[in-house]
Structures are given as structure tokens and as C-alpha cells.
């Protein structure tokens, strides 16, 4: 049976306006056949969680380049649990030091894509994680 296309929310939390990465990823995921919702700038954690639930997405990609990533990953991971939506895959990209990876893993956050990552890596990651039976690689 054919499964529906992967639905993913690309979100820019907080005050950071650097949206190059978010937009490039959003376009690449869409070109790979996914349904992509991009939140636009300056979203609070609550706005992102409620958009994810309303839009019935399987994954949320947070893009943060301002150094505030830990704050938002903590809030959004906790918020998703509270809403019983912890099955939504939370992943991200931006400027994320290696030192932060252990805590992010503990929070249940998926992969983090730092500068230099390819869009193909993100596509493959989502396909392998969300559609392991059909992933090609």
C-alpha cells in the first residue's frame, strides 16, 4: 500500500532572522516529494507546537543560528510531550556545538545538521527515519 508523502514543518523559533538555511532545506525537501510547511520568522515554541499538531506533520525541523538552540529544543521537546505529540520527530540545523549533542540526545532530538551539510543528507535522514521500508539507501 502506498503511504502518503512525508509532511514536515520547517520552523524558525525566536528572534533569529537568518533564514537562508531554512528556505533552502524547505525547497529541497519539497523537491524530494515531501509536503513542507514553512513557518516564517519569529515563532514562539507554542506557535511551532500548535502548527505541527494542526498540520499533522511527522517531523519538525528547527533552524537556529543564534546560539539559542538549547532553549528552544528544551521547550519544544517538553511541549510536544505535554501534548502527547512526542511521536513527531524533532530535528534541526544551524550553529550547534558538539558539546550540546549529549543533552539534545537525552531530550530525544534527532539529527542536527551543521554548516556544510548537504540537502541530500536531510532528505535521506527523513526518509530513512520515517519511511525505512522504502528508503533507497
Amino acid at each position: 500500500m502506498e503511504r502518503r508523502a512525508i509532511r514536515v514543518l520547517i520552523a524558525k523559533p525566536g528572534l533569529d532572522g537568518h533564514d537562508r538555511g531554512a528556505k533552502v532545506i524547505a525547497r529541497a525537501l519539497r523537491d524530494a516529494g515531501m509536503e513542507v510547511i514553512y513557518t516564517g520568522l519569529r515563532q514562539t515554541s507554542e506557535m511551532i507546537i500548535s502548527a505541527a499538531i494542526q498540520e499533522d506533520v511527522e517531523a519538525i525541523g528547527l533552524s537556529v543560528l543564534s546560539g539559542a538552540h538549547m532553549h528552544y529544543f528544551r521547550e519544544i521537546a517538553a511541549g510536544l510531550r505535554e501534548q502527547g505529540a512526542q511521536d513527531i520527530l524533532l530535528f534541526g540545523g544551524g550553529i550547534v556545538p558538539d558539546q550540546d549533542l549529549p543533552e539534545l540526545e537525552e531530550l530525544g532530538v534527532g539529527r542536527l545538521f551543521t554548516p556544510g551539510s548537504s540537502t541530500g543528507d536531510v532528505v535521506n535522514y527523513l526518509q530513512e527515519t520515517l519511511r525505512p521500508e522504502t528508503a533507497t539507501t
Binding site: G14, L15, S66, G67, A68, H71, Y72, E75
Partner: peptide, 20 residues
Amino acid sequence: LPTLMGYDSDHPFAQGEVGR
């Protein structure tokens, strides 16, 4: 970012962003 966006450091929107 709070300064760049015109918010005081104790504004709710500044949470997690002060001095980052």
C-alpha cells in the same frame, strides 16, 4: 538578538537569547 530587535533583556521574547 534582543538588543537588535529592540527588546529589553528581561522581556519574554528575550528568553534564551540574552548574550548568545
